[in-house]
Computed example of a mutant assay.
Amino acid sequence: MNFKESYEVVTVPEQGIEIIWDNFHQNPQFFERIAFVYQALKSEMNAFDDVEISMLYNKISVLCPSDLIEKVHSHLAFSIERSSGHKIQSVHWKIPVFYDSELANDYSSLEEKLNLTKAEIIALHQSRSYTIYGIGFLPGFLYMGELDEQLKIGRKLNPDLNIESGSVGITGTQTGVYTVNSPGGWHIIGHCPIPFFNPSSQNPALAKPGDVVSFLEIDRNTYELIKIQVDTTVFDIKEYLNDSI
């Protein structure tokens, strides 16, 4: 089944619609086209303050008043038609991470379950770039993949009651960054001092689906310096941003 025939639109009463591509996992090349549709819808509906559009893997969610549903459908059909052969707008983030056992207390259990040393876990986590597949379950939370096979592990049986904002975790085939303090079941391996979510900004989530992320190990001094720069508003995110790709 081709891209234009493999999705369904589900109406969410009094909320909006969801667009879901059912055979996403059998057609991984669909992701770039889904990301294009997402970015196009965001651009077209940007003028409406009461419209919120998000994407996670194979699903685009549109929260909007009922009187805008028809407009969303029109832009959706147009975006899907244009998605073939169009390159998505994507940037490459270089995210600094302090892989410290004091800030990430899951290393002892991970070393035992994965049969890897802490150094090997860190090296594998940094060994590749990751695609941002979506944003959720927390505001601005980045879902990224795919992890190296050796790092694949299920969620914790007993989730933590409070994971600190900035924590970098792994589970399944994914890695992610917690953007607010929250309970969670991911295995924490480090901490990022850069805030990737700002609720007071016009675009609260700094990164977007389709962007690419590489993790860079930093030492304690660099970690503390970045935290000071962030707290005093002199931090420049452009230092960790490559050109568009």
Score class of each variant (00 low, 15 high):
Ser6Cys: 10
Tyr7Pro: 06
Thr11Ala: 15
Val12Thr: 04
Gln15Ser: 10
Gln26Ala: 12
Gln29Trp: 15
Ala35Met: 05
Glu44Val: 05
Met45Tyr: 12
Ala47Phe: 14
Asp50Gly: 03
Ser54His: 08
Lys59Tyr: 09
Ser61Ala: 13
Ile69Trp: 13
Lys71His: 15
Val72Asp: 14
His73Arg: 15
Ser74Gln: 09
Ala77Met: 11
Phe78Lys: 10
Ser84Met: 08
His92Lys: 12
Pro96Phe: 07
Val97Ser: 06
Tyr99Ile: 00
Asp100Val: 08
Glu102Pro: 01
Asp106Gln: 10
Ser109Lys: 11
Ser109Met: 03
Leu110Cys: 06
Glu112Lys: 14
Thr117Ser: 11
Thr117Gly: 13
Glu120Ile: 11
Ile121Ser: 00
Ile121His: 13
Ala123Asn: 12
Ser129Gly: 07
Tyr130Gln: 03
Thr131Ser: 03
Ile135Gln: 03
Gly136Pro: 00
Gly140Met: 01
Leu142Phe: 06
Met144Gln: 12
Leu147Ile: 01
Leu151Asn: 03
Lys152Val: 00
Ile153Thr: 04
Ile153Leu: 01
Lys156Glu: 05
Leu157Phe: 06
Ile163Met: 08
Gln174Cys: 05
Gln174Tyr: 07
Tyr178Asp: 09
Thr179Glu: 11
Asn181Tyr: 10
Ser182Met: 07
Pro183Cys: 09
Gly185Ala: 00
Trp186His: 09
Ile189Gly: 04
Gly190Cys: 12
Pro193Ser: 06
Asn198Asp: 14
Gln202Lys: 05
Asp211Ala: 07
Phe215Tyr: 12
Leu216Ala: 15
Arg220Thr: 04
Arg220Asn: 04
Thr222Lys: 12
Glu224Gln: 02
Ile228Pro: 02
Asp236Ser: 09
Ile237Cys: 15
Glu239Leu: 11
Leu241Gln: 08
Ser244Gly: 14
Ser244Ala: 15
